[in-house]
Design a protein around this nucleic acid. Structure first.
Lengths: 286, 286
DNA sequence: AACAATTACGGAATCCGTAAAAATT
DNA sequence: AATTTTTACGGATTCCGTAATTGTT
């Protein structure tokens, strides 16, 4: 029978090199480590250490065992979080996203939670299978046999300009038109962040971490800022009257400013998720 | 911290369905299982069971946990055997094969052992990485970035015919020539077995499991049997004088009867194995 | 009545920390 | 002298089995 705490002792010994340091790292006494490693050798039935009177080191077998033990420990850790995540997913629908826009359409209910961190595109498959999230928005389709990627609609980037700004009276503008301007920008806007930085020449960006501070700044200045067709559903923006903002909203006509939004979920969970997805889809603007 | 014995209880409960049967299967008392599963829920921090007064069953989370636990248990088991095999490989060179012929060339030394079972072609990569064997003969090259497949030579199948048999005076014979005959055959001859059964029409085979019995039969009968160019190195055959056998050895000229032999090993172990491989290669007939 | 799960209690195994010993640098 | 490993001893935890209890079929 295998003992977990002994595997931990082995891996930390492999890192530290002495029993004393191992004990210190694990907050146990050093004789415990001595006994532990003796027991592990006994359990495995192989020699893991070369012992001299005052010195102990791993044999080649011991080094292999330490590597394998580390793998096993991480495997058990991920298993545990997977189970705990799955259990949570039985009571809540955890929603993740690579892009913040669609979150404004998520209904505010007790059984629906929104993950705090963005998820990278490459992490979507992993996040779903480990039940870190059960529903993930993305701007790309995910190709995976266990995952369904459903197209929801587009998010259209808009710029909000002071009425006296050049271009404010046009029906649309291009990134090129905005060259050289200064914008107030929320920090966490996913792929939009890179896009505006790359595609608007010589622009300046004043990043805001705090949502309320952002609102205050745009209320009491005439600086331009970005929204999208999904922002109108945003609780924060809904409180503001158009007069308070005193801007003209102009869509951006570059093709990349019209971003397709997909929702991704495990096929196996489709049935439970369908009502929520339909609700979000029905609320999609225009 | 995770406890192994509890994972075992969980997986057997998933199989048996009741705590009583679980206890019986594990040779412990039933209250132990009750407490064990309570502790596991405590450790995981999730509800694994639905309990009614007299009935207990897994929740969906519990079923997931049972599946994951089983994976973890097999992973730890394979890890353990891998370590033990590796340790053994530090003291012995374990030799596996898909075909028995090359084993006659393996020197008889204390630090060289021969695996009892044949290894399937598809299992070679796995057997090497788990150190089940450190040197494996095969009749095909293995394509794997961590494995080196070195060509050693050919094994040429021969048939040993009574001198009065038709074809006994020819320099070579074909499988077709042997149609309808009856042969004494050792049971464990790997791919040769299928080949002679498939390629010799209407032949009869009298299979022998025991080597000594096989020798006795061919000594005291005139039945034909198969050998190869590697058999002359075989300890058993070396004891026999040609007169005792009283057969004429004729090579088989079908192309498949000339089988290429490769030796496979982990590239990482090449240095230690090279002397042994060179020794085998040097002993290869003609 | 038979079966299944839980709870209560005492014993046994084991894991830990303290203290002391042995050996090296 | 300082450091590191090992051994010895006593205490605490915990895991187990027996026995009794509750509830269902």
């Amino acid at each position: 029978m295998l003992d977990y705490y002994l595997l931990e002792q082995l891996t930390t010994f492999a890192q530290t090199g002495t029993l004393t340091k191992t004990a210190a790292a694990l907050n146990i006494t050093q004789p415990s480590v001595t006994r532990g490693m003796q027991k592990l050798e006994e359990d495995f039935g192989v020699q893991l250490f070369e012992r001299q009177a005052n010195r102990i080191k791993l044999t080649p077998t011991g080094e292999l065992a330490a590597r394998e033990a580390e793998q096993l420990l991480t495997a058990s850790q991920t298993m545990l979080t997977k189970i705990q995540n799955f259990d949570r997913s039985q009571h809540f629908t955890m929603i993740g996203t690579t892009v913040p826009g669609p979150l404004t359409l998520v209904p505010d209910r007790d059984d629906v939670q929104i993950a705090k961190e963005f998820i990278a595109i490459e992490q979507i498959s992993n996040a779903l299978t480990t039940a870190e999230a059960t529903l993930i928005f993305s701007d790309q389709e995910i190709l995976d046999t266990t995952i369904e990627s459903r197209y929801l609609g587009h998010e259209q980037l808009q710029v909000n300009l002071d009425q006296f700004t050049l271009f404010a009276s046009q029906p649309t503008v291009s990134f090129q038109d905005l060259a050289g301007m200064s914008f107030v920008v929320m920090r966490a806007i996913g792929p939009w962040s890179d896009m505006i930085k790359t595609d608007i020449p010589h622009a300046q960006f004043m990043y805001q971490d705090d949502r309320a501070a952002f609102i205050e700044i745009i209320k009491h200045s005439s600086l331009p800022f970005f929204t999208s067709n999904l922002s109108q559903k945003d609780a924060f923006f809904k409180q503001l009257s158009p007069q308070q903002l005193d801007r003209i909203t102009v869509p951006i006509n570059d093709p990349q400013a019209k971003m397709p939004i997909y929702v991704n979920y495990l096929k196996s969970q489709k049935r439970q998720l369908l009502p929520l997805i339909d609700e979000i889809s029905a609320n999609w603007p225009e």
